[in-house]
Design a binder for these strands. Sequence first.
DNA 1: ATGTCCAATAAAATCGATTTTATTATTTAT
DNA 2: ATAAATAATAAAATCGATTTTATTGGACAT
Lengths: 220, 220
Amino acid sequence: MSIGSTSSAMESSATKGAYSTLRDLILTGELAPGEKLKIDNLRKILGMGAAPIREALSLLTSDQLVVRQDQRGFRAAETSIENFQEILELRCQLESIALRQSIENTSDAWIEEVVLSHHRMIRAEVDPKKNFEILHKAFHLKLIGNCNSPVLLGFCSQLYDLNIRYRYIASRAFAYEARMVRDEHQCIVDAVIEGDFNKANQLLCEHYKTTGAFVIKYIE
Amino acid sequence: MSIGSTSSAMESSATKGAYSTLRDLILTGELAPGEKLKIDNLRKILGMGAAPIREALSLLTSDQLVVRQDQRGFRAAETSIENFQEILELRCQLESIALRQSIENTSDAWIEEVVLSHHRMIRAEVDPKKNFEILHKAFHLKLIGNCNSPVLLGFCSQLYDLNIRYRYIASRAFAYEARMVRDEHQCIVDAVIEGDFNKANQLLCEHYKTTGAFVIKYIE
DNA sequence: ATGTCCAATAAAATCGATTTTATTATTTAT
DNA sequence: ATAAATAATAAAATCGATTTTATTGGACAT
């Protein structure tokens, strides 16, 4: 019934289930970039009617993971090196804004949340039961999450997903190079605790760009 | 992307028609912020089945104009002063990035397009046949459109719409204060032609913020 | 051979009806 | 009288079938 779904539990609604399953499939590249997403096929795979699938696809359009062609259905968004580099650059630019504001608004409560989500992410590297990817995203969003700008955070979250999609596609089964980035993460957290925006920002952007360079090699 | 037109021409598809009509209704405030959007009501208004309406609403979710509550349907996105100020601030920040890159990539072709879209917008102030709002948006997007970053432009376009919604809501029928902004627009164009990012950027942000302050008064 | 037209097929879009879920109103027990 | 439980209602979600639109594969003429 369900294909490679991270959504093990029965979803509350068919639309939601379709949304998260399709999202996973596209993010991981199991549904390839540019691939036609035929409703009938998906119906068979997901075991539901057309309506919730169409709705889920419309929703995925928001995330730029699906493209809608009028009267010609849906397909998974294309990928390209230019797009990847744009995503990378935008992440640096936008997260820089969010990070600066977050640090300006710094508070003990936020710092503690950062430390906590960092801790949880590290734990997940060891314990395969925990889903590292989800915690990794949570950590990065928490890092910029004190900026008091939900719209900006929404953009960053979207860019995060678009970025991670490339990582999956670049090498479907490549283990996240945890040891390399572990120190980087720790340094960022330290800079944030110190309230040093410039340092934190530089480390964060470098972190993205080195990982990005790594991915680009795979794409080519 | 149509503003103002309550689907004059017969739309190619029901979904598209519903999308642009609903979009207009929400942008102009005819569907008020926070208002429940009941499918059955909309069916009567739009004269179509539930499927295309639900799809259009899902699509409008992308634009942050509609909010979906699981199992509890859709409603028009709420508004607030905080949200307005966030939009305003983000526009300045993101358009600043896009403008800088646009000017760095400057070319005769782009400059000419800027001048042209400016001209067309000015003409529309006089000639009520032309739709000023559409041309105004086109002008502002063209101004930052040479940045070679479609994703960023998408964000800016979205923020533009969210912003204009507040202008409509602040005063449903208030004539755009064209004379005031006319000079401002011209100065921005001149600075862009000169290739002076700092000047253009400062003027642009001031332009947004003075208009914004004006709107805030109406909101309160 | 090459391009145009038309028929056959496949797919998307849409509809009307049904099922599921939330909300409201009413009853019952304390 | 108030709170919990239940019934009645309204709405959302979903389904299966139908209609509309695109695509494909010849048949024919140039």
